[in-house]
């Protein structure tokens, strides 16, 4: 049966809830809804409520767009909902949560890789000098 993507609002009493990303969009074009759902349900089950959206492909102004309904996110966290790691990452970047330690690690790795690629000499240059 079809159900609204904004959520159906129904959930079992005392069930564990989680705020997570739900992949919408189509092949090769990811687009995510940020939703609160029952943790035991899979991604095809209707969600409790939609809390925002996340568009991971940068637009023509070189921006990734995230929308977050802070009021409802606060409500669900206050009601004991858990958050998945990608949502933790987004909320950390938004300044709503502390930045996730994993992101500091990823940033540091990226910086290190960039430095090592800059220092290494390309093969063409090696051939010319020899």
């Amino acid at each position: 049966m079809l159900h609204p993507s904004s959520g159906i609002g129904n959930f079992a009493a005392n069930s564990a809830k989680v705020i997570r990303l739900l992949r919408k969009g189509c092949a090769n074009r990811p687009f995510y809804h940020i939703v609160v759902a029952e943790a035991r349900n899979d991604q095809h089950a209707p969600v409790i409520e939609q809390l925002g959206t996340y568009d991971p492909l940068p637009n023509e102004h070189n921006e990734k767009l995230v929308s977050l309904n802070y009021e409802r996110i606060q409500y669900w966290i206050g009601n004991g909902a858990d958050t998945s790691k990608p949502v933790d990452h987004l909320l950390g970047l938004a300044g709503f949560f502390p930045v996730h330690p994993k992101q500091y690690l990823m940033a540091w790795r990226n910086r290190r890789n960039q430095i090592s690629t800059e220092n290494s000499t390309p093969i063409d240059d090696l051939n010319k000098t020899s």
Binding site: G52, P58, H61, N62, E63, K64, L65, V66, S67, L68, N69, Y70, L90, L93, A94, G95, V99, Q103, Y104, M106, A107, W108, N110, R111, Q114
Partner: peptide
Amino acid sequence: LKGLESTNTVFTDV
């Protein structure tokens, strides 16, 4: 956080 992303990320309160 430098190096984590190559683009701006815009967060809108809806």
